[in-house]
Amino acid sequence: MASISRHFFDLGHLDDLAGASTPLHRLDPRAKLLATLVFIAVVVSFGKYEIAALIPFFVYPVFLISVGNIPFKCVLSRLVLALPFALLVGIFNPLIDRAPLSHLANFTISGGWISFSSIMLRFVLTVSSVLALIAVTGFSPVCSALLRLGTPKIFVVQLMLMHRYLFVLLDEASKMVGAKSLRTFENSTGGLRIYGAFTGSLLLRTMERAERIYSAMQCRGFDGDIKRTLPAEFGKRDILFLCGWSLLFLLLRAFNLPLIIGQILTGTM
């Protein structure tokens, strides 16, 4: 519960950051969304033992975070929250894959550790870029971007409504949980029947709320289609952003920059 309350708190925080007005915030959301997708696709396309070539890719999330003026801490704390699954699956790699892959001075490094590190790098890269994307764009613009890119309207409307009422319902649920915990003792959360009644009441309230929202929509002329004004057209800066980054990602995919730098420095080419 604590973690969900924190999620709730954080959720609003990301949207607050998106309210800032840096040049990055002003870009078309489609440009940022597509560039991030290209970024992720390129990052995950590397082989499982790749480490060095992944490092230059930090430039993208770092760029978003810096230019977007987002606190690094904010992204970092979320990274940690999202860590468990990648860690859980990745941690088996060192245990299973013990074939020596690399020697460094007197140490032998097994393939498992290398691929584990690679998984962690990918994790940090992909997750931080998505978080940074939301923080410099905001949810509602991402929704309009999805709509403009051809996502079915019903689905986008779902996303919008869900995000909007997430705050309201989390608030309601936490009030209910709070009220209940005042009257239950010894950490007992109650049996299944009580659970059913409790969650069921929240569900009924939710459905009644949906009815009221529907009435409110109808009162303002809702006819099954939610209309929105869409933001300005795709500009030159947007094209430049999207193409520039995509090109860089593809170049970094083709040439292992750190290895080249290292070889130049150590003169081993």
Partner: peptide, 9 residues
């Protein structure tokens, strides 16, 4: 309840 009425982002 304004929360019921303000449903857009």
């Amino acid at each position: 309840n304004p929360d019921d009425q303000l449903f857009m982002p």
